[in-house]
């Protein structure tokens, strides 16, 4: 059952990726896509695809889809980890200041004109901002080596509020075009993502996701409570600190190339928990795959579903995510329990 779901998610992901590289302003048939890949691996002959199709796939759509896969996986797994760690199904990377930190980095890069110099500046500053903000939140919340969940959430709110104020301050003195650029960035988007972006985050994200997967059983045990965890040989303070650090780093890397994309980290783990149960050894890989599928398909929708042209993917995820959030709320109200 559990393995089946992972298998189906993998299948969905491959299908979604093929759809996403095929559909767009120029439609590329499935057979051509297969041929293109065979060709690039040096297999087969008698190809019928055009040179233009090859350019579109390899230079425009494939890097974008790969970024969607990586970012989706990272946000999905980080969301699952945060929810498990905080024992709160509503937590996501934003609670520890990832989004506001990344936004501050981005606004710095935009308003000081760094984006014009190199395309690396914005992601690097955004990633750095996210990482520093989350580390600040964690260190503010730590009490003698322990990080109480409530303190963490509260200091997350405080730091976010402060950073948002700094962002607003910088924006007050920005030009209008910079304002627009920043606004677009905060909606999260995968347009114009290139191989440079993929190269930048591919390995670190894979490592981060792998490291989080490694801690899945510890996450299960942390859910039994601090003392139970210690009694089973899992040091709750150390494990939580490690998990927070890796999750912050991974989420920071993800938002550095995509901007802040809301709701992926929240709803994907939530849906999958309903399907596979709370065992993180299944839930974490499932959330990673689910996040990828969700973001690839959301990006496809963002590119193709709106008649007036492409919209930012963050808008699509929020449009899908917010109603689901409300659905959960109403369901919880009916069952008379907190979510």
């Amino acid at each position: 059952m559990m393995k089946k779901i992972i298998f189906f998610l993998l299948l969905f992901l491959v299908a979604g990726m093929i759809l996403a590289v095929g559909i767009g302003t120029v439609f590329i048939p499935f057979t051509h896509i297969i041929q293109l890949f065979l060709h690039s691996w040096g297999l087969g002959s008698n190809f019928s695809f055009s040179h233009g199709e090859r350019e579109i796939i390899f230079f425009i759509r494939l890097p974008r889809v790969l970024i969607a896969v990586l970012v989706g996986a990272a946000l999905g797994i980080c969301g699952a980890v945060m929810q498990g760690m905080f024992r709160n199904p509503m937590a996501d990377p934003a609670v520890i200041g990832i989004s506001s930190g990344a936004s501050l980095g981005a606004v710095t890069a935009i308003c000081f004109g760094l984006t014009a110099i190199s395309l690396y500046y914005l992601p690097i500053l955004a990633g750095l901002g996210a990482l520093l903000a989350s580390l600040l939140v964690c260190s503010l919340a730590s009490r003698g080596g322990k990080i109480p969940v409530l303190t963490l959430i509260l200091s997350g709110i405080a730091v976010s509020t402060f950073l948002n104020a700094v962002i607003s301050l910088i924006l007050s003195f920005a030009y209008e075009y910079q304002l627009k650029e920043f606004l677009f960035w905060t909606m999260g988007g995968l347009d114009n993502r290139r191989w440079e972006h993929v190269d930048m985050v591919f390995l670190p994200l894979l490592l981060g996701i792998g490291a989080l997967l490694f801690f899945s059983q510890e996450l299960n045990i942390l859910l039994l409570g601090e003392e139970e965890a210690q009694a089973l040989g899992v040091n709750p303070a150390k494990t939580r600190a490690k998990l927070l650090f890796i999750a912050s780093l991974t989420a920071a890397l993800a938002v550095s190339v995509s901007g802040t994309i809301s709701f992926v980290g929240m709803i994907v783990p939530h849906i999958l928990r309903l399907l596979v149960g709370p065992d993180h050894r299944v839930l974490l890989p499932a959330s990673a795959l689910g996040g990828s599928v969700f973001l690839v398909l959301s990006d496809l929708l963002a590119r193709t579903a709106f008649p007036l042209g492409e919209v930012r993917v963050g808008i699509v995820t929020a449009l899908l995510g917010a109603p689901y959030f409300l659905f959960l709320l109403s369901k919880a109200k009916k069952e008379g329990e907190a979510i």
């Binding site: 498990g84 024992r87 299960n220 859910l223 039994l224 409570g225 003392e227 139970e228 210690q230 009694a231 149960g277 709370p278 065992d279």
Partner: peptide, 15 residues
């Protein structure tokens, strides 16, 4: 050494 507490709050629906 193993430990059993008075009340262990397990909020996630493990089997």
């Amino acid at each position: 050494v193993a430990l059993m507490k008075q009340e262990t709050q397990i909020t996630f629906p493990f089997t």
